[in-house]
Amino acid sequence: MDSQGQTTSLQRLQNVEKRIVKVLELAGGVMDELASPVGPRKDVVQNHCLEFMQLIKDIQVALRDEIKSACEYRPFEKCDYGSRIANEICHKKVEFIMSQLDAIKQTVDEYHVAV
């Protein structure tokens, strides 16, 4: 399983989806164990059921938190769009300076060729 350090809502919801897949697999495992010709192994069934209930609990908790956080939605107060535009402007400056330096180098080369 992934670590609990995710920060984005989409990542947490994706983990919920993975848990749902795991839950279905556990249910299938329990059914296979019950359908065993030699009879179900109690410890295996018990472990599967425990894990099943634990995952259901985790899913429920995660979804509840997501619903709660969705209600507490805030606008992006620390947006870095301004800094990003500043980076684009600096990028243009660097490109301009490089073009100027290339022109100077070309002039120097032409001077050397003339001499």
């Binding site: 994706q14 989806e17 897949v21 279905l24 697999e25 299938g28 059914m31 296979d32 019950l34 359908a35």
Partner: peptide
């Protein structure tokens, strides 16, 4: 009963696979 269990188990596993593919 055992046959029903097998069917349900297959159904769950198929659902798990389909859901995993969808995810």
């Amino acid at each position: 009963k055992l046959q029903c269990y097998r069917h349900v188990g297959k159904y769950f596993k198929q659902s798990a696979k389909a859901f995993e593919q969808q995810v």
